[in-house]
């Protein structure tokens, strides 16, 4: 990540494509999708500088970005690890063993829920229903849903992610479980 907050050409093209989806003068509609792009481009979280930059692109006040970014759970207002492990804990996942998954990851990574590993690789977070109830327990990391988890699967996933060492974003295309 460079220090300057500015979209590269490719990201800017995506941003302009998003803005064009909405009627003239309604460019604020593009805010949520653009925040996703910004989060992926600028280190996996939204710093005040990043949010100000997005405000300037959409020609809206910075507060309009802050109030939105702080409302939605997918936007990180503090730095997180390259891999944000989001374990679903609501009813159907809970009855199929979500607590075991959380405990296992805590033990394996030596962190507690909400914490980040010292190497900045993983952050563990529990989240509410992700619409994966029939394939519980599950966790999301970036765009990927990892379902029907067993402790072996979790271990393999952590190994794979650590070896790859890259930032995982919701905007990534390398999801696995589909088509």
């Amino acid at each position: 990540m460079s220090n300057e907050i500015k979209f590269n050409e490719e990201a800017m093209a995506t941003v302009n494509k998003i803005i064009a989806r909405y009627p003239q003068g309604k460019q604020k509609s593009a805010l949520l999708p653009i925040l996703h792009v910004a989060q992926a481009e600028f280190g996996g979280w939204l710093s005040p500088e990043t949010m100000d930059y997005v405000a300037s692109i959409l020609n809206i006040k910075p507060i309009e970005v802050y109030e939105v970014a702080s409302f939605y759970s997918m936007f990180n207002l503090k730095p997180v690890g390259k891999c944000l492990l989001e374990v679903c804990r609501t009813s159907s996942c809970w009855v199929r063993g979500a607590e075991d998954v959380v405990k296992h990851i805590e033990k394996r990574l030596g962190i507690k829920e909400g914490e980040t590993t010292k190497d900045g690789m993983f952050t563990l977070k529990t989240v509410e229903c992700l619409g994966s109830c029939g394939t519980a327990p599950m966790l999301q990391c970036g765009a990927s849903f990892h379902e029907n988890l067993t402790m072996e699967k979790v271990d393999a996933l952590l190994d794979e992610y650590r070896a790859a060492g890259k930032l995982r974003s919701y905007t990534d295309m390398d999801y696995k479980n589909t088509l």
Binding site: R21, L32, P33, H36, V68, F71, Y72, M74, V127
Partner: peptide
């Protein structure tokens, strides 16, 4: 298509 930000 418009994506949300995680809010029930």
């Amino acid at each position: 298509v418009q994506v949300g930000g995680g809010a029930y």
